[in-house]
Nucleic acid binder design. Structure first.
Lengths: 243, 243
DNA sequence: CGATTTGTTGACTAATATCAAACTGTGTGG
DNA sequence: CCACACAGTTTGATATTAGTCAACAAATCG
């Protein structure tokens, strides 16, 4: 799919865009590039001059603390614009990298700014995307703060499943999620060993499985119950009818 | 100080606003109300029709999970607009409440939307505020994920100190922070007992103290070192000169 | 096919939670 | 002014969760 069509479809999930807005988006110049797995896109301290649309594959944002430990802050799936905040926060305060081979579309800040100034509806749609991004961070904080390891992992996988489902990428209880146990640990604030043990417990209870970059959620009800998962923080449009 | 002046000053810290923009902000109708301590302002599930500016006192955002545990997501100090996201995310996905007696200024969404449409610079300034909000959440995730209890607490207090300093509310190594040990625990994902013990350790080493709603940072260098605190995620303007 | 990354296991340790009790301090009504 | 109530803090003992280390097995990649 073409990058700008993808963007239009994504923004229209939550916000009404006129044909005029859509045309304007369609004429946005996008520079498409292929990235191998585990490759940095932008790093903390950078001053990017473009935003990045994930067209294919997966990415994650992370931050390293001086002791060399890394905290993964978010995972990104096709359709996401993981560094949209760089449009107004000049200096990156975290890293963005692929976690699988990925196709990325780069859009110049200048072009995006011009579009925003000329099309208030597009501005709102993008602003809203950054606000949902923040809502996901909030839930991530809850996850780390109050949930024990198993619930935390269940919650993360339920969220990724939910977001993948929204773009039609969940098939037959399965979805692609190219994450190693080590990376899951970095995301959840758990050691690799503990991640492994929690995963085994889920497998033993036939709740879920993760292998070969694929998550299989055998018993979705149990996952939701274990995680206390409620997707309202994702602010899907059905929850938020227009004002 | 008048609410709109406060807002103008706040937005001008990071963004250039013309006299025209400032005048427009000044004419924004603000409804000022006093709140006692520990009083909800908006709750999860609400559909607020106004945003709230903290003029005096302190607030926090939090989320409760079904087991009744509460995770505090952020603390808010005078000048903050803790629920600015409600302008575009109709349904609150978390609670907002005072933690001390507070003076709050309420601004109608409708008025704010009109202002945004007419004044792109104000829109950007507000958007930027929500992006910094998200940046703080990201660092909070790092805090919960990789830092042990003492470092985590040091980081939180260093952040609050930094934000209080920015509005001139740090005096003589002290600043007001009306938080109980129980609330600190809810913010940091620690039990009250553990918070107490960590605090005692800091006291014993003459690093910092927290009593009577006041934080005293005796040895700021040690706090920064223990926390690995680096304020660049707060995106102060000196780090982000205009494009 | 060897080399490297990823996953798995067991034994042990460290960090933090839990529980229950006692001890502040502060404000209130008698 | 005292006594009581209450919210907040402190303490000790014990339990639990998750981390560390080290070795090995399995999968993946060139």
């Amino acid at each position: 799919m073409h990058a700008t069509e993808m963007l239009i479809r994504r923004l229209r999930v939550d916000t009404h865009l006129s044909e005029d807005d859509a045309q304007a988006l369609k004429s946005l110049p996008v520079h498409v590039r292929e990235f191998p797995a585990d490759t940095p896109i932008v790093l903390e301290g950078d001053r990017p001059s473009q935003c990045c649309l994930v067209m294919n594959g997966f990415a994650c944002r992370s931050k390293v603390v001086m002791q060399g430990e890394r905290q993964i802050l978010s995972f990104h799936i096709p359709g996401d614009i993981p560094d949209l905040q760089s449009l107004f926060l000049k200096i990156m305060d975290h890293d963005l990298a692929t976690i699988s081979p990925a196709t990325l579309g780069f859009i110049d800040h200048a072009a995006l700014r011009a579009l925003i100034d000329a099309h208030p509806a597009i501005a709102r749609a993008l602003w809203r995307e950054t606000l949902i991004d923040a809502a996901i961070f909030r839930e991530w904080i809850v996850n780390m703060g109050v949930r024990p390891a198993a619930a935390r992992m269940a919650h993360l996988l339920a969220e990724v499943r939910s977001r993948m489902a929204a773009i039609g990428l969940v098939h037959d209880k399965e979805f692609e999620f190219p994450v190693t146990q080590a990376k899951l640990g970095e995301a959840l604030g758990l050691s690799t060993v503990h991640v492994n043990r929690v995963l085994q417990a889920f497998r033993a209870e036939h709740v879920l499985d993760l292998k070969k970059n694929t998550v299989t959620i055998t018993d979705y009800e149990k996952v939701v119950a274990a995680a206390g998962f409620d997707d309202s923080y994702l602010h899907r449009s059905r929850n938020d009818p227009p004002a």
